[in-house]
């Protein structure tokens, strides 16, 4: 049971997959903690849950949980279900049986981003504030200079970084020692944020089609330019050696091992896809990466062999989200049209 892109079978046939038409744009997708269920956040208020096993029977769609759009979704780090956020201002915990309980409600706000930390914490962004939800408690951090447009936990879960106009803010979450927030400044609007898997770097995508990366300890920063569009999807490899970025026609990885990427070109590899990558997701354990295009094409890349294979052909509907199962053998894919796809990479 191994993913091998040099195997001819991988290059000639598409892997087995399940596809369901949901008829509402997909904003986010995620696997639950044990990888048995996958869920999709939909533009009609539904959180559609499917068994991760693509041969298992599909249950009927449940009633919408949110009024409006489900904008954000993560696997529940404190349970077997999911946590969702919507433009109705609510954060819901969805249990394994599909029942939902409200964790937070902010009238008139949108819950735009959710991130989870494995020890049971969830951070949500709503307007200019970040909210930490842990052990039945909600704590607010902010306000920031503008609406929070991206956030992520540090490697050890002790801090959360938030992107906004003029840079990023790093909050220490400790209740015992109240540390002031740290501000890392860079002019302009930062629209996506990912903290490196080793905790050393924080990367943002900017409105000006650049990437900005800060070294957290030294507070030094670097800027990578040359993208034809905003980089809204960033993904660090499990070993933190590379940062994958969207908005290129091929997989594009900045090297962060050794002295870092300064003065070096990014590593670009794989088949040129149709359009630009709209979402990238590094594999949770190995050297693979999944990339969804704004044309609907889906590719799987291997940085070791610098190869890629097509998992799904372009169909005109931009891929909006990707999620790997914890074991790295299944890939969930959502698009603008509302196709819910689960690909099984075991051959």
């Amino acid at each position: 049971m191994k993913i091998d892109l040099s195997n001819p079978a991988w290059r000639q046939t598409l892997p087995p997959a399940r596809s369901i038409a949901a008829d509402a744009p997909v904003a986010a997708c995620a696997f639950n903690r044990d990888g048995t269920t996958v869920a999709f956040a939909l533009g009609d208020g539904q959180v559609r849950r499917l068994p991760a096993d693509i041969k298992a029977a599909v249950p009927d769609a449940a009633a919408p949980l949110h009024k409006g759009v489900v904008l954000a979704l993560v696997g529940d780090p404190a349970g077997d279900g999911f946590v969702s956020g919507g433009d109705d201002g609510r954060v819901l915990r969805i249990a394994a049986d599909g029942s939902a309980t409200e964790l937070m409600a902010l009238k008139g706000k949108w819950i735009e981003h959710l991130v989870a930390y494995r020890a049971g914490a969830v951070a949500a962004s709503a307007g200019k504030s970040m909210f930490l939800l842990r052990d039945g408690e909600v704590r607010e951090f902010g306000p920031h200079p503008s609406t929070v447009a991206g956030l992520d936990f540090s490697k050890d879960g002790s801090r959360v970084a938030c992107a906004h106009y003029g840079g990023i803010t790093v909050w220490s979450l400790s209740k015992e020692v109240a540390l002031p927030p740290r501000r890392f400044a860079w002019q302009g609007s930062h629209v996506a944020l990912r903290w490196s898997t080793d905790g050393k770097f924080i990367a943002t995508g900017t409105q000006e089609n650049d990437i900005h990366v800060w070294r957290v300890a030294q507070a030094t920063d670097m800027r990578m330019q040359g993208y034809p569009a905003k980089v809204k999807s960033l993904s660090w490899t499990a070993d933190a050696r590379f940062l994958y970025t969207s908005s290129q026609p091929v997989f594009t990885a900045w090297p962060f091992s050794g002295k870092g990427p300064e003065g070096k070109p990014p590593l670009q590899f794989g088949e040129e896809g149709a359009g630009l990558l709209s979402v990238v997701a590094a594999h949770p354990t190995a050297e693979f990466v999944a990339g969804g295009y704004d044309s609907g094409e889906l590719q799987l890349g291997d940085i070791k062999t610098r190869r890629s294979v097509v998992l799904k052909m372009a169909d005109g509907s931009a891929i909006t989200c990707l999620a790997w199962s914890p074991d790295g053998f299944k890939l969930a894919v959502g698009n603008e049209r509302g196709d819910l796809l689960v690909v099984d990479l075991r051959r």
């Binding site: 744009p25 409006g68 759009v69 904008l71 433009d87 735009e112 609406t147 447009a149 409105q207």
Partner: peptide, 17 residues
């Protein structure tokens, strides 16, 4: 420019209706 409008329009486009 109004960054909030960019975000809001993106969000509105995710609606089914």
């Amino acid at each position: 420019v109004r960054g909030d409008l960019i975000r809001i329009i993106e969000g509105l486009m995710k609606r089914k209706d």
